[in-house]
């Protein structure tokens, strides 16, 4: 037999643009916004930090798009500063969480019964304790500040993802194609990186995307309660806490814009995470 009969390719129709374009556009837009915040905040310098008593509590206008606060700070500049802080705290904390979760899941699923029992105990303990109390305790013990908040958020957010990844790895280890790779003389290292990890990426990405808003919101909550970032830093949590006092006085812009922008930031991460997951899926990816 010369050449196999192929899946018939009768007449490929004209080429067209698919949903992938929109996926990419959404993800890129999200990336641009996030990059804008990350780059824009340092460029603002002291704008939004130095007080300007000539323009206190101004309503949104062309000069101050988001209005100003009681000290005459431009709220747009303060929001960008705040988002920048949230961005880094959220990113670093969520990433550390994901790394902890992945490492523990691999440890539990590959290092035998004993390791599995230890990790299961850790997961159950961490999930059994009330989240916010643990956060406050850790942050307080570490003396507050950015590092303390990052550590507190990171060490409280890994258990759920650990469980998901552990189950995934256990299932993969039993899979025929993994055993087949073993019988082809492949090492566990090769199998871990080439077979198992690609199957975990979607879970890890989704985990990161889901952890991110959690991390930001917990950072905001900690700060709001006074156990987190210093009150002098324009974090979103600080801005929101401050805005409460002026809400009754009708100064709606103080809380609205920072809140909306925080939501936008979370949505940006969602768009990127979803886009990557779609492109990585051989089935959905063809749409």
């Amino acid at each position: 037999m010369s050449e196999a009969i192929d899946l018939p390719v009768a007449s490929p129709g004209p080429a067209r643009l698919g949903n992938r374009v929109w996926t990419l556009v959404a993800a890129l837009l999200g990336l641009v916004l996030i990059a804008g915040i990350a780059i824009g905040a340092p460029m603002l310098g002291s704008l939004g930090i130095a007080p300007d008593f000539s323009a206190r509590l101004a309503e949104p206008s062309l000069a101050h798009w988001f209005g100003t606060d009681p000290f005459g700070h431009d709220m747009l500049a303060r929001t960008v500063h705040g988002l920048n802080v949230s961005l880094w705290v959220g990113l670093v904390a969520a990433s550390i969480s994901v790394v902890i979760a992945t490492a523990l899941a691999i440890f539990a699923a590959t290092c035998g019964r004993w390791a599995d029992a230890v990790v299961a105990f850790l997961v159950d303990t961490a999930m059994g304790l009330p989240h916010l109390v643990l956060l406050i305790l850790i942050s307080f013990a570490l003396g507050g500040g950015t590092t303390a908040v990052i550590i507190a958020v990171a060490v409280t957010h890994w258990p759920r993802l650990t469980r998901i990844l552990r189950a995934e790895i256990l299932q993969l280890r039993q899979a025929d194609f993994i055993i087949a790779a073993r019988r082809m003389g492949r090492s566990w290292g090769h199998i871990g990186f080439r077979h198992i990890l690609p199957h975990l990426w979607p879970q890890i990405l989704v985990g990161l995307v889901l952890l991110f808003p959690h991390a930001i919101l917990h950072e905001a909550a900690l700060t709001f309660l006074g156990f987190g970032l210093e009150p002098s830093r324009p974090a979103i949590g600080v801005l929101l806490a401050d805005s409460l006092r002026y809400l009754m006085a009708g100064k709606w812009w103080l809380g609205l814009f920072p809140g909306l922008c925080l939501l936008m930031l979370v949505l940006c991460f969602d768009a990127i995470g979803n886009g990557l997951r779609l492109l990585a899926d051989p089935r959905q990816g063809q749409l």
């Binding site: 018939p8 009768a10 007449s11 129709g13 080429a15 067209r16 698919g18 992938r20 063809q286 749409l287």
Partner: peptide
């Protein structure tokens, strides 16, 4: 089936 040919262009293939 609608499949990607390259990163963005799609073609329809009769099966």
């Amino acid at each position: 089936f609608r499949r990607y040919r390259g990163l963005l262009a799609q073609v329809d293939v009769r099966a």
